[in-house]
Each structure stands twice: as C-alpha cells, then as structure tokens.
Amino acid sequence: MELRQLRGFTAVAATGTVTGAAERLGLSPATVSDRIRTLERSLGVELFERKPNGMVLSEHGRVLLPEARRLLEHAEAIRRLLADTRPRVTIGTLETLIATRLPAIIGRLGDRRPDLDLSVRSMMRAPLLRAVSDGELDAGLLLDTGDTLGALGFTPGPELSFVDVGTVRLFLVARPGHPLADTGSVAPKELSGDTLLVTPPGCSFRMAAERLLGPAGKRIEFDSVSTIRAWIIQGLGVALLPEFAVAGDLADGTLVALGPPPAELALRVVWREDRTDARDLREVLYAMAA
C-alpha cells in the first residue's frame, strides 16, 4: 500500500465518485481509478461496488476506511514533526462573533493547545459553509439551534459535523415605558402594533425572530445590530437582539426586556468529518468546547 493510494481511496469513499475524488485531489479521474485498482490488487479484495451512479464501499472497504484515515493522519503528524512546523487551523465566523465571543474560545484553545497556530476569517454563513465543505476553511463558527445542524433554518452540506462550544441568549428589547415591559411574557400577536427592527434575511437573529415572533407587526430592516440598538434606544421600535449587544443597556436601564429571554442559540463549530486529518481537527475543536 502507498499513501497516495489510500488518499485516493478515502477521497472516493467521501465523494462517491472517481470524478469527485479527482477534483478534490487535483488529479485526473484515470489516475484515481488506477490507484484504486492497484490498491485492490495489492490487498486481493474489492473495496468498492461499482454502480451506474457512483462507487459504494464494499464490506472490505468499510473495514479499511477508518484504518486508512488513521494511517494518513499518522503520516501527516510525522511530516509535521520532521518539518518542525506548527499545526494551523483556519476558522471562519461572523464579524459580531469575532468581536464578542471568539476571544474567550481562543483563550480556552490556547490553554489546551499552545502548539497551535490559529487564523480567523470574517464571513457570512452561506459562504462560510461552502468554504468548510470545499476545504478552504478548517472549521466555521456559527449560530444554530436544536439537535441537528441547520435546524435554525439553513441547509448545510451533508458531510459536515458539529460541536457546540457555547450559547447566545436573545432578548426582545424596547425603550423603558413600553406597555409590555412589565407583563412578564409576550405573545407574538401583542406586537402587531409595534415596529420590529430586523437584520437581513439569512441572518441568525432574523431567523430566530421569524420563528419566535411570526409575521406580526411592521418590519424595518438594517444591516447592523448596532444600528438597530440605536433606533430602539430612541423609541423607534423593538427587536430581538443577542445578549452581548444589549447586556449593558439592560443593566443600566437604557433598555428593558419584554418578558424573559425567549430564545437561546447554540454557538456551534462545524467541520468536515471525512477529512484525512479529522481526528486531529476534532481534538482541537473539542478543546475549544472544553
């Protein structure tokens, strides 16, 4: 067995086709096919069932796959050791999370993995998910809810895994004196006379507002959470905003919460489980969650 054959094998297993594996590895389909056939001959077994719509792992292939990944991970660790290079992880996330939540996470990671170099890129969710799926990013940090990836209302790639590293509480806030400020709870229909200030479609806070508050009330859309906060302070509407944006205002009475926190979003790291270095990356991500 050769490492290049194992790389071809794991790539075909991940993509389901020789063409997809070739695109991932930057090789021709003929080269990938040759490596798979050579590996099968050396082992004396068939690793895939060839079907009209792609390649499916055989029983022998399913046995080999985790071992092949471990061999490739070990080979990469040896390469880094001999080259005396520090492992690097590149994470993409929203600008607001970079400023408010990422420092504490990086601090935890630094305590547990001082050998690691970390770089961060500011990206919106859709391009972030594409970049993780394409291997341009090692991982992405985003907001979500529920027990499955994308339950907030977006569609992730099927190959992505996740681990939760924290939470973000959301508050429905208004200027003091709002008639619902002391009611203890707020039903969506009670907001029909209010102007709801929202972020653009696709934003996590907008998705949460649509799920919790429904279509009630007039909406005005802004790109910036800070702009929405400024309008609310002037009494020009209400909004569902993250705790990190309004905690100080709630503490000093500049803003009031309408009822208890209506939602809590998960701060979630996503990555590709089928990467050849997935085990090392998974250890890094769980260190972030520790």
Rank of each mutant, 00 (worst) to 15 (best):
residue 3 L to W: 08
residue 9 F to I: 07
residue 9 F to E: 04
residue 11 A to C: 05
residue 16 G to K: 07
residue 19 T to R: 15
residue 20 G to Y: 01
residue 28 S to Y: 14
residue 28 S to P: 08
residue 30 A to I: 13
residue 36 I to E: 07
residue 43 L to D: 02
residue 45 V to G: 02
residue 46 E to V: 07
residue 51 K to T: 12
residue 56 V to T: 14
residue 57 L to D: 05
residue 58 S to I: 07
residue 61 G to P: 03
residue 62 R to C: 11
residue 68 A to G: 13
residue 68 A to C: 00
residue 69 R to H: 08
residue 78 I to C: 12
residue 90 T to I: 14
residue 97 L to P: 12
residue 97 L to H: 11
residue 99 A to T: 13
residue 100 T to D: 13
residue 100 T to C: 07
residue 101 R to G: 12
residue 103 P to C: 09
residue 109 L to S: 01
residue 111 D to I: 02
residue 111 D to G: 13
residue 111 D to M: 12
residue 113 R to N: 05
residue 114 P to M: 02
residue 114 P to Q: 00
residue 118 L to E: 07
residue 119 S to D: 13
residue 122 S to M: 12
residue 122 S to I: 09
residue 123 M to I: 01
residue 124 M to Y: 15
residue 127 P to A: 03
residue 130 R to N: 11
residue 134 D to W: 01
residue 135 G to R: 06
residue 136 E to C: 11
residue 140 G to K: 08
residue 140 G to E: 07
residue 144 D to E: 05
residue 148 T to H: 11
residue 149 L to P: 04
residue 156 P to G: 05
residue 158 P to D: 13
residue 159 E to N: 07
residue 163 V to F: 05
residue 167 T to E: 15
residue 169 R to H: 08
residue 173 V to Q: 03
residue 183 T to S: 14
residue 186 V to H: 11
residue 187 A to D: 11
residue 189 K to M: 15
residue 191 L to D: 03
residue 194 D to Y: 00
residue 195 T to E: 06
residue 195 T to C: 06
residue 202 G to D: 12
residue 203 C to Y: 15
residue 205 F to W: 14
residue 207 M to H: 04
residue 209 A to I: 06
residue 209 A to L: 12
residue 210 E to A: 14
residue 214 G to C: 02
residue 219 R to S: 11
residue 220 I to V: 15
residue 221 E to I: 14
residue 224 S to A: 06
residue 229 R to Q: 10
residue 229 R to G: 07
residue 232 I to P: 01
residue 234 Q to E: 14
residue 248 G to W: 03
residue 260 P to G: 10
residue 261 P to R: 00
residue 267 L to W: 00
residue 268 R to E: 08
residue 270 V to G: 05
residue 270 V to R: 07
residue 272 R to H: 09
residue 275 R to S: 15
residue 277 D to K: 09
residue 280 D to I: 03
residue 281 L to G: 06
residue 281 L to E: 10
residue 283 E to H: 13
residue 285 L to D: 02
